[in-house]
């Protein structure tokens, strides 16, 4: 556990916006006639990291690795089972719902599916102005003014305000979601796979928009994705999650050039290389499926699919080890 502390050792310094410490989120599994808890689904299991002001931390993992749950726990949409979350130095995971409300101004979320994340019965104006209506006491005309400003900022036209979500394409809808998230000038935005549901050509547009907005408004992103390619484009640092745990966390360049964890290596080698002159990475195949988070493997959770697993992996949980500046990995190969 001491190694975990080293990652968070610089908490308390001024440029740390978000400090997540040993977060666990277990969902009870109920069974039997009396609906007694018969087990726990460990969606997020002991995750710690920090996010600095103005940077983008990418979180990568396959479906079921707990990355979306992690985002929701940070936003206080789900209560963590254990652990602490500091936002701007304030502990927020134990706050009551009423106490959380003012915080919502500073932390926002953009969801994955632009077709499910907008209430189809509300016009764009209503959707984008809703956060202002809920959080501030601005007058109607002030809200309208602010809404037009932000709608134009995300690349829509001012008179799109009067339209309804069904009149837009997926990419445009995602712009509405972004406008809705940004209208209150938040410091921190969790992007929960914001481009996964979009066409590849639109993905680039939306990613570039998000990057531009980050530069303009000084935003801090927690960017969740299942695609290392997308994350590479936007992140400063990347964390790789596997079955509720962080396997490896490193600055982007370091992670892509010198991946240490066999899982990261496997993920990277699965990205096809189009340019022949570039050297093809050593192919590391990861076979099989993600084990059930209700019954994770003993020791290292990745050992059942790891090509380099040895005896120790089944017995002992690997701890985070610092391998380079800011580069931490949880694997027995390096301890």
């Amino acid at each position: 556990m001491t190694n975990l502390q080293t990652i968070t050792s610089y908490s308390g310094s001024d440029d740390i916006l978000l400090d997540v410490q040993n977060i666990k989120k277990y969902f009870p599994i109920k069974g039997g006639v009396l609906k007694r808890t018969i087990g726990h689904l460990k969606a997020v299991d002991d995750v710690s990291f920090t996010v600095k002001k103005g940077e983008t931390l990418g979180i990568v993992g396959e479906s079921g690795s707990g990355k979306s749950t992690l985002g929701r726990v940070i936003l206080n949409l789900l209560d963590p089972t254990e652990g602490k979350i500091y936002f701007n130095g304030q502990e927020i995971s134990q706050l009551k719902r009423k106490q959380v409300r003012p915080l919502r101004k500073d932390m926002q979320i953009v969801f994955q599916d632009p077709f499910a994340s907008l209430n189809s019965k509300m016009s764009v104006a209503e959707l984008v102005e809703e956060p202002l209506l809920v959080q501030t006491s601005l007058s109607k005309s002030q809200r309208k003014e602010r809404a037009i400003e932000i709608i134009e900022k995300v690349g829509l036209r001012a008179d799109d305000r009067l339209k309804y979500p069904h009149e837009f394409s997926g990419g445009q809808r995602q712009r509405i979601s972004i406008a809705r998230a940004l209208i209150m000038n938040p410091q921190f935005v969790i992007c929960d796979e914001p481009v996964s549901a979009l066409d590849v050509s639109i993905q680039a547009q939306v990613l570039n928009l998000m990057k531009d907005l980050q530069d303009d408004l000084g935003l801090t992103y927690l960017f969740i994705a299942h695609d290392l390619g997308v994350v590479k484009h936007i992140s400063d640092r990347v964390a790789v999650m596997y079955l509720g745990k962080i396997a490896e966390i490193a600055p982007k360049k370091e992670l892509y050039e010198n991946p240490l964890h066999p899982y990261t290596q496997g993920l990277l080698s699965s990205i096809p290389v189009i340019d022949k002159s570039k050297k093809q990475r050593e192919k590391i195949k990861i076979t099989g499926d993600l084990p059930s988070p209700a019954n994770p493997p003993s020791g290292c959770v990745f050992r059942t699919r790891c090509p380099k697993a040895h005896d120790r992996c089944a017995v002992e949980q690997p701890l985070f080890t610092k391998k380079a500046d800011g580069h931490y990995v949880a694997c027995h190969l390096y301890t």
């Binding site: 929701r72 936003l75 949409l77 959380v100 409300r101 003012p102 919502r104 101004k105 926002q108 979320i109 969801f111 994955q112 599916d113 499910a116 994340s117 907008l118 209430n119 809703e130 956060p131 809920v134 959080q135 979601s177 809705r180 209150m184």
Partner: peptide
Amino acid sequence: EQEFVLGARAIGSSDFR
């Protein structure tokens, strides 16, 4: 279970709203 309801919570809407 829909995301837009989660979204409404995320901006701080009350139960009533």
